[in-house]
Amino acid sequence: MARTYSLNTEAAKEANNGGKRINETGKYSGKIIAAFYEKNQKGTESVNIMFVSESGQECGPLNLYTHNSSGEELAGYKMLNALMACAKVQGLTWQDTPIDLYDYDEQKVVTKTKECAVELQGKRIGLVLQQEEYQKNNGDIGQRMVIAAPFEADTELMAVEILSRISQPQALGNYMAFIAKNPVRRLKNSQASQPAPRQAENPDPYDDDIPF
């Protein structure tokens, strides 16, 4: 006997927006569901972004590794500061907050308590998300989404433009032209690996002359 079907409005919406999860390189506007802090077993610190687009697609945790075990800044530190500039946030404070995260051991979504940045929760943001290759524990090559660049959702200004008081966006268009030619960030040892585009150094986001 054939199954009885009744309208599932959420499934209908997902048919048009490509599913509930973001898995394609592109430019997305939406909001930060949560930004939580972690330190792994090696002592590496990260701020991890949970993002939902305006169409309802989700992505995350998007890991920004900020400092190694010696306290040295990593590439994710600059990316976090750029994101803060685009969200017009000058500092982060932390509060224990329950959030829903996928647990790989239990193989399901569970509620966990994490130290979350109060100032970023619910903030509108634009993100350029890019597919990135990574090596799995079994040696296979997988793909995941990473933050390639943040921008201000309403104006499409990037951090360097906001902090330089530029009112007309230009950097994002140039960046997207590069991304269109390099939709997947290859492993460093991959023959198809392409260098990331160089961006102008952002002014100190904690400068007294900060424009927000």
Rank of each mutant, 00 (worst) to 15 (best):
A11M: 10
E115K: 15
F212N: 02
I49Q: 01
P203G: 04
P205R: 05
Y28K: 08
Q95G: 06
Q199N: 12
G60M: 00
V160A: 12
N48P: 01
N8C: 05
V146K: 08
D208W: 12
A153H: 07
V52G: 03
T93F: 01
P183I: 00
Y134N: 05
H67C: 01
K188L: 13
A15L: 14
E115H: 14
T25Q: 05
A34G: 02
T25D: 04
S164G: 00
L157T: 02
W94R: 08
E72C: 03
N202A: 08
E54T: 11
P150W: 02
A11V: 10
R185D: 07
K31H: 15
G60L: 08
Q90R: 14
E24A: 10
G71W: 07
Q130A: 00
S167D: 12
G139S: 03
P203R: 09
L120W: 01
Y37H: 15
A35Y: 09
E14L: 14
V109E: 12
L64E: 05
P98A: 06
N17G: 01
T113D: 00
E161Q: 00
L62C: 05
V146T: 11
L120D: 06
Q107R: 13
T66W: 03
P98T: 02
G26W: 01
G18R: 03
D96Q: 14
V109M: 11
E24I: 08
N81K: 13
A11Y: 11
K136H: 06
F51S: 01
I99N: 04
A192V: 09
R185T: 05
E115D: 13
Y104C: 09
I141H: 06
G26S: 09
Y28V: 03
Q170C: 05
G26R: 07
T4C: 11
E10L: 15
L187H: 01
L120G: 03
R3T: 14
A148R: 06
Q191H: 13
Y5T: 14
R185P: 10
I99D: 09
R185G: 10
F212Q: 02
R186Y: 10
R144T: 07
Y28C: 03
I99A: 10
L80W: 04
N182I: 01
A196W: 00
T111Y: 08
V110L: 08
D96P: 09
F178C: 02
G43T: 09
L129G: 08
E152W: 03
E119L: 02
D140W: 07
N16R: 13
L101E: 10
S69H: 11
Q121C: 09
Q131L: 13
R144C: 00
A149W: 04
L62G: 08
P211R: 04
R144A: 02
A149K: 12
S6W: 12
N23K: 15
S29H: 09
L83H: 03
A117F: 07
G60N: 06
F178W: 15
K108T: 14
L74R: 00
Q57S: 14
V109Q: 12
E161A: 05
K123H: 04
Q57L: 01
A11R: 13
